[in-house]
Design a protein around this nucleic acid. Sequence first.
RNA 1: GGGGAUGUGGCUCAGCUGGUUAGCGCGCUUCGCUCACAUCGAAGAGGUCGGGGGUUCGAGUCCCUCCAUCCCCACCA
Length: 888
Amino acid sequence: MCEHCGKQHGIEEMPKTYDPSTVEDRLYKHWEQSGYFHSAPNPDKPPYCIVIPPPNVTGQLHMGHALDETMQDILIRYKRMSGFETLWLPGTDHASIATEVKVVEKLAKEGLTKKDIGREAFLERAWDWKKEYGGRIVSQLRKLGSSCDWERERFTMDEGCSKAVVKVFVDLYKKGWIYRGDRIVNWCPCCKTALSNAEVEFEEQPSNLWHVRYDAPDKSYSIICATTRPETILGDTGIAVNPNDPRYKDIVGKTVVVPIVGREIPIVADEYVEMDFGTGAVKITPSHDPNDFEVGLRTGLPQMCVFTEDGHINELGGKYEGLTAKECRRVFVDDLKECGALVKTEPYTHNVGTCYRCHTTIEPMVSKQWFVEIKHIAEPALKAVEDGRIKFVPERYVQTYYNWMRNIRDWCISRQLWWGHQIPAWYCEDCGETIVEEEAPHACPKCGSAKLKRDEDCLDTWFSSGMWPFSTLGWPEKTEELKYYYPTNTLSTGYDLIFFWIARMIMFGLYAMDDIPFDTVFIHGMVRDELGRKMSKSLGNGIDPLEIIRDYGADSLRFSLTSGTAAGTDMRYSQKKVEAARNFCNKVYNASRFVLMNLGEGEIGEIDMNMLDIADKWILHRLNEVVRDVTANIDAFDLNLAVDRAYSFIWTEFCDWYIEMAKPRLYGEDEAAKQNVRAILVKVLSVSMKLLHPFMPFITEDIYTRLPGSDETIMLSDWPKVNPAFSFESEADAMDQLMDMVRQIRNIRAEMNVPPSRRAHTILVTTPENESLCTQGAQYLNKLAFASTVEVRFDKEGIDKKAVSVVSKLGEAFIPMNELIDVEKELERLEKERKRWEGEVARASGKLGNQGFVAKAPEKVIEEEKAKLENAREMLAKVEARIAEMKA
RNA sequence: GGGGAUGUGGCUCAGCUGGUUAGCGCGCUUCGCUCACAUCGAAGAGGUCGGGGGUUCGAGUCCCUCCAUCCCCACCA
């Protein structure tokens, strides 16, 4: 290791096998300490900014994060190298419910509850918890190589973010777009809080449809209702039928008696009831069903809440008081059966709403909550996507967004939790006035009383994360950062967060900043296990990214998450894929070792363009192409295509071909040629490392900084550009033909079982215009096609007609090895060749003979087809001639 | 009920705005430890792109339809 800069130079400390563990942590620390990740407003550069989807502060890194952060880091590193002032703003989310649940659990172990210790002590505990575990996820992000600006790390409950939350809440309230009222909400009896609609997940569960008879007080008539939740009968306050239903015409307005309970309730008419379903009569429980709630409002039925906040029957449930909903259902059904009110029980599968955090069955309940009147902020948010100011990648996800936004309902934002942003509302205990202010009021503005009580509840976590793109940049202060980086550019996340987060950020961004929060939403899928199942705790099939990093390195993990999967679709994690990535790292590493160990003593200067031979021109031309393609692919968010393109260039074109072609000169005597090949190797390797760097930051930095003439760090070096001087179209084509010849010779030798050690004299018969190509190619036939000597000629004079030969566009190669010749086998092979070219001639001439094709296809396509036909004919003629010679 | 996705060699998956001899990796077969790499190299076998119909000079790539699998939203008690 260099004692001046702490880095490794040249070939020093490079064992045969790449070991990421000796590189990754060291480089990350170096990057971070050097301030390479830091960004600040810079008027000389265009900004590029991504805000991280803040992981739960007490969470742990999982594959979903690994995928998401990798995508973002790729974009960030690419943009940073491409001349943008690039900020990746990291932080964590307080995750109200998730964290509170954990703290409550911990308390429970000590035999305590929230209420026992009170709000203040509870929050103290929660902050302690955050201090203890909050750093974990953040250090795990570093393991991945994420180039976040840690100097700007934020937390949704830090001072600035909290200020933003309070300001938006107060503003919205004063505008009248936030209201408080008794509404039916999704209540989680386990978390003991209300939830928004987005936080309810539906699960199909088998159950029953119970048909229950409600009799008239005098038993002169009765009505049967079907229900999936018989326990809610305790809260029934009416029966509804369709106003047009002839069956019930006569009894609308009359009453029936709730079985067991004995309460007399009215029969009402409401359009909501479908005559065709069940018995056409619905029991109405306004307090515990959203539809019933609406019916109740329309028909004036009273609400009657029979559940406690933790899901037990309350005092209104009479003898059932204290039972859970589930227990009550069983007992109640038994009782119904006993008293003869249960008419029928039929199996029935239906969707049950569950809490997205704990998967407890949701009980719809009426309670007093705060809501955002969503239409005011939803409309502009819908428009921003409709008019293209914000685009989704892949585009189809706009449908998901539209679907949600067009059917959006008012957003319940209050949570009966303590860990979060407490709602800035106070109630006057004397006159009942509600005061909503950013600062705590001292006295009631209406009656002057000082007896003010603050609302106990806190806000939905997503309320604060919805402000993340601007609260983290300093809003509501008018900061330089806000001015420079907002709107941010790309927002990357999984499709599961479109409703929770994306939609909220767009709404709040447009509301608070009057501008979009980002221009592109980059959506990726979920990481599944090898069998295609979702990774989950309950299945125990989760793969720990940190273990993969430990065993294979972060670069391998990143590569395997990026390669071979199109954006927006789910991907399967597989061990094989990581191994393949690891092997690629090793390949890159060894190619570099090769280059480094052949650098020699002298300085590596610029490439001498006058000394390039055909192989050099070929690789430089290909280099240009890969630069062009990788750049275009990243720009189009086709990260898989980009990385696969770089992969095949490095492995196949550079390692398998060019390095082999470089060896003759490298090991030769010509010093000037040697020096030039070295310069080319360094150039190609250096550019390759840059192209690969966004995807595999560590190994590329390690190699790059070892190369002569490199910058201090690859991550701040310039992204490669296509170099017009490296454009060698025709030479590259010729080289391809030469390579094709090499492949054919290898093929023949393999088929004839000739060992590589057995070298052979090779005669290249060509035309004068191809002479120099063939002469240059001779050394490669030597090296790659096991020739002992290569002779270039223009005639076949004196060549054994029965020699093994290959036919190519460049010419014919004869390998007169008598003992090799198996005329039958060779003829068989030539026949195969002939058929192939015959097929091609037939295909191409068929196409060109088609009037429609010639008339309508674009010029370029026709020209290409003509060239193909010409080539095929030429090859066919040569092969046929060879067959004739062999037979003669 | 509405919307979307997927179906390509044994396996996992790429194939952009229609024109490639249909690709990669794994696996398989046969060689090879030549001084970057056996976490390797060379050669090879193997798909006609879920079925059917259509548009087009031309379709894996567009349209229709059917089949299969999956996801999201809504939720009729």
